[in-house]
Nucleic acid binder design. Structure first.
Length: 925
RNA sequence: GGGCGAUUGGCUCAGUGGUUAGAGCACGCGGUUCACAUCCGCGGGGUCACUGGUUCGAAUCCAGUAUCGCCCACCA
């Protein structure tokens, strides 16, 4: 579907001729070449050749949350980019040295999960390839995805400084990881110990607490009889037993005790005796521990210290043995029973059957419980005893908490501070070891004597730190770091830390961390903890958290549900500008938003509206002004109320946008611009100006002033909108006259000052607009032909006379009132039969519209309909008047409310009373 | 079990104490005015979830209730 009449080569689109824009707004053509122009002008970097930060400008830094290198971008990424780019472009235009630093995350476990799926299609697996070939395969994979991601971000218009592109697996990050870990180790904030970790049998690695998803499920609670053994003979006593309750019978094989509550009279005599664990022929003690809830199950608990968190703690308190019974794949092993080699759930079934056969399975009932599942693979997490590296979080969390409590770091919206507080105050040590291949290898070396050497050197230590054994005899830890460990260093590793680089000195601490609230713990908290500890300062002064993008039904977008939206497809259809606007417009910070075609359509229509408004302004240039005329400020004396109003409203929009930007209320930014540009500038500013521009009787200088006023306002709106819709604003801006000190590109032009606000002219024009709307309303209600020019009489207060004189042609045109006859007093208005009566609350204007010739069938009944309208208006006005008077009659109100409010209420009541009186009079009451 | 958020017109959402609660979409009526039908004009439509409280005044603040959503949580 191509329209050959309006299509022009794209190279011309990028730089349209002065005074003209292509007729049709085609986003993909407009956007096509502009990014290249920006790149060529070198304006993305704060120190780029085309950048123009103020000489003494403070830096403004946003480090991009690095997308996972596992695939293409989704709408969430587009939202990240839109919001961050909005802030960056705004900062750049306000003269700051703005750095928006791009990056990619190697996404260790997520990437392996994806790659495992890909190679599985070729019948391969991690094990079949081996570590080296697997990592080569990974390199191929990420090389492809990297290009896809970068090109998508460019398509979105993100003004990222590509020269500073970083990657969590590059050399600088690798060094930062080593140095960070060594530093933590030296400060005793990283330690290695055997502990119960969350093991995912599917991923074959441990995962952090955050990666375990609590899932409510209905399981079974089995009651199992353990037989006592005779203290003297060591033989089981067939008639004496203790019944325990468990949801995981297979862990019987790892039991090393049975626990009861110390105060439980039922079992008091048994404490200290022993029972025999079935199948493994192990006799274990009955111990007393307050952790046991006597009311749950049988009041006796089997203790499996190597496979359960509670039991592990109990085991430590009582010095119990901790036999491991499951291997990496969650297969029973090393128990010396027939169950060795069986999967945990197969073993469970077999054990239950065998217990039943022995008569020791004494009960089972359904049980509501919470299972931990792997965030990545959804496998049931198995607690296992492993020797791993941990980061001591308590001292780090204390500093992070202090930063937000003191206000040095602010969270927007602030209610997330409660979540932040809760998590950081109950945090447990962070297991950073992963038994994966794709990631940063832990820089710890072990010598045969068991010494540990942590080294920050690329080639590792030259010898064991403790005993001096040479490097050749040392063995490096095979594990890698949790992917979030390198992400946690991101705000400073990207700037060159641990080296004192120029960038680090200049841009750290960064300004704003913008990301989705779903990774506040995974990422934001860890950046804060590690950043403060390692660099001595908070990594950013503000954290802004966005909500999630959902589908039109409020469902989370996911590949399995099939409701994901491809940003590229959206941009192809509606443009990057529209996508950005829609994502920002629909959002309140921290709140999820639904995304659907309507929001996109709204945004695309808005871009189209702006495009056409610009086309009008450019085409409306008075012939007296040369096409390439330099931008001149119109003389004050040549400005009428219309021009002053246009200027004032642009200033009001600027102030509103400034306010919203300062509060990180980006949805409010787009709202102010949508209303300002569409409802004010287009609907009224341009429509009112049209009349002046087309009026040959208006002096040339004044017509020129009108046009320059439109250009000024358009210029202001383009600047204000640029951070949200960079492409279309840049394209239009290229076509309008510039000021002498303007750069070639809007992107590096200066942010407008909110100057020219005039509240008196706002009020005066407000009344004129109200009058025009009222006349239109009356005509529409009376079913008069919309296009008919009707004789209209207007009465006005004396002080409105000057405004009227200046605006009569505009009022006439917009209200289709011709001739338009002024009167001093309402009483002078002619009121023939069938005249439409216009009564306004403000009282500045009052009007009658004379009907067309009575013989016209089309207006038959118009008078009656007009009367009905007035009746309704009267009813409403009376209702308001009663309320207003009641309010004023209340002395509590007049005594306590602020004087301005009381005064406003009085004015309101007076106006209402006058309106009611006039309406009554018109209705003949 | 603890915490957080939401509840405003048919739909999606703004609006954190002050006149008459707004927008877009949808809906109804009317429009070929030379920027735009991706448009223009006019209109209908809401006791702001509920109960109580604070206040001269509450969609807005407080307490409670209900419903929905999310986060956190090692009772077998």
């Amino acid at each position: 579907m191509t329209d050959t009449t309006t299509t022009e080569p794209t190279d011309k689109m990028a730089s349209p001729p002065p005074g003209g824009l292509p007729k049709a707004y085609r986003p993909s053509e407009v956007e096509g070449a502009i990014y290249e122009r920006w790149l060529a002008a070198d304006v993305f970097a704060p120190d780029g050749a085309g950048s123009r930060p103020d000489p003494d400008a403070e830096p403004f830094t946003i480090i991009q949350p690095p997308p996972n290198i596992t695939g293409s971008l989704h709408l969430g990424h587009a939202q990240r980019a839109a919001v961050e780019d909005l802030m960056t472009r705004h900062a750049r235009m306000t003269g700051k040295a703005a750095l928006f630093l791009p990056g990619l995350d190697h996404a260790s476990i997520a990437a392996q999960f994806v790659l495992d799926g890909i190679i599985a299609r070729d019948g391969e697996s991690r094990q079949s390839l081996g570590r080296e070939r697997y990592l080569e395969r990974m390199q191929d994979f990420v090389t492809t995805t990297r290009e896809v991601i970068v090109s998508q971000e460019r398509r979105l218009g993100a003004s990222l400084d590509w020269n500073r592109l970083r990657y969590t697996m590059d050399d600088v990050s690798a060094k930062a990881v080593r140095v960070a870990f060594k530093t933590l180790h030296e400060r005793d904030l990283a330690y290695r110990t055997e502990a119960l970790v969350n093991w995912c049998p599917g991923c074959r690695t441990s995962v952090s607490d955050l990666e375990v998803v609590s899932t409510p499920e209905t399981g079974t609670l089995w009651s199992i009889r353990y037989h006592r053994v005779d203290d003297a003979t060591g033989e089981p006593l067939p008639d004496e037993s203790v019944t325990v309750a468990t949801t995981r019978p297979e862990t019987i094989l790892g039991d090393t005790a049975v626990a009861v509550h110390p105060d439980d009279a039922r079992y008091r005599a048994l404490v200290g005796r022993r029972v025999r664990i079935p199948f493994v022929a192990r006799d274990v003690p009955i111990i007393a521990d307050a952790v046991v809830d006597p009311a749950f199950g049988t009041g006796a608990v089997k203790i499996t210290p190597a496979h359960d968190h509670d039991d592990h703690e109990t085991g430590k308190r009582h010095g119990l043995a901790m036999p491991t019974i499951l291997d990496d794949a969650a297969v029973v092993s090393g128990t010396g029973t027939a169950y060795d080699g069986l999967d945990r759930y197969v073993a469970r079934t077999a054990i239950l059957a065998d217990l039943d056969a022995r008569g020791d399975l004494v009960g089972e009932k359904p049980h509501e419980m919470v299972l931990g599942r792997c965030q990545r693979s959804n496998d049931v997490i198995e607690p296992r005893l492993k020797t791993q590296w941990f980061v001591r979080t308590e001292p780090l969390a204390a500093k992070a908490l202090e930063a937000t409590r003191s206000g040095r770091t602010r969270i927007v919206p602030d209610h997330f501070e409660k979540t932040w507080e809760h998590w950081l105050t109950t945090i447990r040590d962070w297991n950073v070891s992963r038994q994966l291949w794709w990631g940063h290898r832990i820089p710890a070396w072990y010598c045969p004597d068991g010494h540990v050497t942590v080294s920050a050197e690329l080639e590792g230590p030259s010898a064991c730190e403790d005993c001096g054994r040479p490097a050749a005899e040392l063995r490096q830890d095979p594990d890698i770091f949790d992917t979030w460990f390198s992400s946690g260093l991101w705000p400073f590793s990207t700037l060159g830390w641990p080296d004192e680089t120029d960038d680090f000195r200049r841009f750290y601490p960064t300004s704003v961390m913008e990301t989705g609230y779903d990774i506040i713990f995974f990422w934001v908290a860890r950046m804060m903890m590690l950043g403060i500890e390692l660099t001595g300062s908070e990594p950013f002064h503000t954290i802004t958290l966005s909500g999630l993008i959902r589908d039109p039904f409020g469902k989370k977008m996911s590949k399995t549900t099939g409701n994901v939206v491809d940003p590229l497809a959206v941009m192809e259809e509606a443009g990057a500008d529209a996508l950005r606007f829609a994502l920002i417009h629909g959002a309140t910070s921290g709140q999820d938003q639904r995304f659907g075609p309507q929001k996109l359509e709204l945004a695309r229509n808005f871009a189209n509206k702006l495009w056409n408004a610009a086309r009008f302004v450019l085409g409306a240039r008075p012939t007296e002004i040369a096409v390439d005329a330099a931008r001149t400020a119109p003389a004050e004396a040549d400005l009428g109320p219309i021009e002053r109003w246009i200027r004032s409203r642009a200033a009001a929009a600027t102030a509103a946008v400034d306010r919203a930007m300062a509060d990180y209320q980006f949805g409010e930014v787009t709202r102010a611009l949508y209303d300002g540009i569409w409802s004010e500038f287009c609907d009224w500013g341009i429509e009112l100006a049209k009349v002046r521009l087309a009026d040959e009787s208006v002096p040339v200088d004044q017509r020129a002033a009108t046009w320059w006023t439109l250009v000024d306002a358009l210029d202001t709106y383009l600047r204000l909108l640029h951070p949200v819709m960079p492409f279309v604003t840049e394209a239009i801006w290229a076509a309008i006259p510039h000021r002498a000190d303007d750069p070639d590109l809007l992107m590096v032009a200066r942010w407008p000052a909110a100057a020219g606000r005039d509240e008196r002219v706002d009020a005066a024009l407000g009344e004129v607009i109200e009058t025009i709307v009222a006349i239109r309303n009356a005509r529409a209600h009376a079913d008069l032909p919309a296009g008919a020019w009707l004789e209209t009489h207007l009465a006005m207060a004396t002080d409105s006379r000057a405004t009227f004189e200046a605006m009569a042609p505009a009022i006439g045109r917009l209200a289709r009132a011709r001739p338009l006859v002024p009167h001093d007093r309402s009483a002078d208005l002619p009121r023939p039969d069938g005249a439409l009566e216009i009564v306004l609350p403000s009282g500045s204007f009052e009007a009658t519209v004379l009907p067309p010739a009575a013989s016209d069938d089309a207006v038959d009944g118009a008078a009656g309909r007009d009367r009905a309208r007035l009746e309704k208006e009267l009813e409403e006005a009376e209702g308001h008047l009663v309320a207003a008077r009641a309010r004023l009659a209340n002395t509590a109100f007049t005594d306590k409310a602020p004087p301005a409010v009381v005064e406003g209420a009085r004015t309101r009541a007076t106006e209402l009373a006058e309106q009611v009186a006039r309406l009554r009079e018109r209705l003949g009451r």
